[in-house]
Design a binder for these strands. Sequence first.
DNA 1: TCTCTTACGTTTTTT
DNA 2: ACGTAAGAGA
Length: 729
Amino acid sequence: MDVSHLLDNLNDNQRQAVTAPAAHRLVLAGAGSGKTSVLTRRIGWLIQVEQASVHSILAVTFTNKAAAEMRQRIEPMLGYPIGAMWVGTFHGIAHRLLRMHWEEAGLPRNFQILDSDDQKRLVRRVIQSLELDEKRWPPKLAQWYINGHKEEGRRSHHVAPPQDPQNQGLLQIYKQYEETVERLGVVDFAELLLRAHELVRDNPELQQHYQRRFQHILVDEFQDTNSLQYAWIRVLAGDRSKVFVVGDDDQSIYGWRGAKIENIQNFNRDFDGAETIRLEQNYRSTGNILNAANAVISRNSGRLGKELWTDSGDGEAIDLYAAWNEQDEAQFVVDRIKAWVETGGRRDEVAILYRSNAQSRVFEERLIAAAVPYRVYGGHRFFERQEIKDALAYLRLIENDQDDTAFERVVNLPARGIGNSSLEKLRAAGRAHSCSLWRAVAVCAENNLLAARANTALAAFVGLIASLRDACHGLPLHEQVEHVIEKSGLLTHYQNEKGDKAEARVENLKELVSAARNFDPDEDVVAERPEGMTPLAEFLSHAALEAGEQQGGQWEDCVQMMTLHSAKGLEFPLVFLVGLEEGLFPHQNSMQDAGGLEEERRLAYVGMTRSMQKLVLSHAESRRLYGKESPGIPSRFIDEVPAELMQEIRPRAQVSQPLYRPSQARGRSLEDNTAFGGIALGKMVSHAKFGDGIVMALEGSGPNARVQVNFNDVGNKWLVMQYANLTEL
DNA sequence: TCTCTTACGTTTTTT
DNA sequence: ACGTAAGAGA
């Protein structure tokens, strides 16, 4: 068989990686070194040369996008569809294992997936049911605690009993959460991985089966794996499979969510006889950009070592702009973009990269003023939108009425007279009988625990769900969705809602019907389709696992704006890396420890290496962020770029007079306002009825002057000065 | 039950 | 500064 197409246009190292004899391999692939190409051709090589069966290959990625891209590149290469090959995300593959072996995994056949928003709500309910103070144990923290333990492979019974009350509370929440999730028959993201790991680890037959089956395991973005994913790969591999991982320790930027850079650093130790192959030739950026990026990243310690190079010349200098403030910075960038377009460049060749989302606003304002179309990455994706989740909650209840998260979400949406007090009684009944809210409805009815009106309303809700379930039976998926949206009253509810968001919501609900119509389960699933899954159940899993694109349609020639994190993997001819100030980038919260700072530096490295032709760095001498104006010290990352590679557009600290003065805060000056008499912030005052208190705020003037006083007995009150008759103490 | 007020948080994001 | 979300009052 002619396999030259697998090796065309590859450099020596790439070729070595593609054709390496079977053994464990670590491919250290620098930014822009053609790693996706190597990965897909490696798979082609295994099949066409090594005669590996498609069946024997497992390819794992982090994002659906990467998985889809890999599939799309492999199929034309082989010339036939690869349905039998397992290509997917960690979560997707884990999900498939659990669907196929739900019984061994101890899950109900129709288990559903909680996304992180669902999970947070559920954690919150658990905290409330334990009567713990949400101030002291915020749901977000508890969620982080639970997922953190799961990602280290720890169930609640593995956690050593803590001595301090704070952690005791968290552990108690974790325990209760485990029980609840079990009862509801739902599974969160971390649970997918943990359960799939336990399934293969603790079940000798399955373990042997999969270890025999997957002769070749390939992993993309290996530097982003967490402990659990690493353990999972190891148990699936056993000691026969060959593991081929591709990654770049210098691009590890997800340590804060559990990724262990040590995994890539220890690969050669843990996988016997592993050999490292480096891809250092870069096909993306100019020499100047690479030299700058190399210089910055060289300050990190413990690197596996790698230096990018190119044979395509130095290119233009890197520009450095010292702006007076964030407005000036944005205007400079917009002017540069206009010049780029005027000289024939496209807008979608330009990216503005920043450390945190809050920075996008100023750029948006200036771009709008200059009538330059743009697109901001991030924000809610399709299946995460409120109205979509509402509709999905109805569908989930049809599929599984034990799902309290879905029940709570829509029991009173649209409003049907089931208020918080009735719900609280319902929850109490559920707790008392350890049953779902669905069953608690019947319990309450039998024992007359609720007001007659609430009882009727709940009975009607239960009846509604039951009738939706009946009506949907046998209908094609999209008609089920359509029916539920209409008959549940959701559509009418959003149609009647006012505001500019409402219209988009109605549109989205209709879009959900189309999504259901276009949903083709076959595309998603291999020959070993899990038996007994309804199309609806598959659709719901799909919605949770693949939240969909940010927004469709707006792709045409727009300036691209995104955080440095979301820029990973992308490339643009012209890149603006903005906000290079100490405290902002590197971010304040990451500057304390060496590890955090090194991750910030890798982020800088990622940002710089996005640029193909021209890189522009900028910082502001003064910046207004979160309502406060503060002076900015140029980021250390600027100093780490060799000066000879940079060209200063406006030399730093040359003049001290800002062009744009920071706008004066429109604070009311209190000195010239006589309405408050001698009353001022922080003073103790006395009121005839409320007693003594301290002045918290002053507002308005003349007859409208109001004062906020925190009274010792009755707390905060707003009082009109004119009538309050306060006396100073 | 709805609307208004107040408090809060605010690095990065995928599944 | 600003948006959101929970809580309080009408």
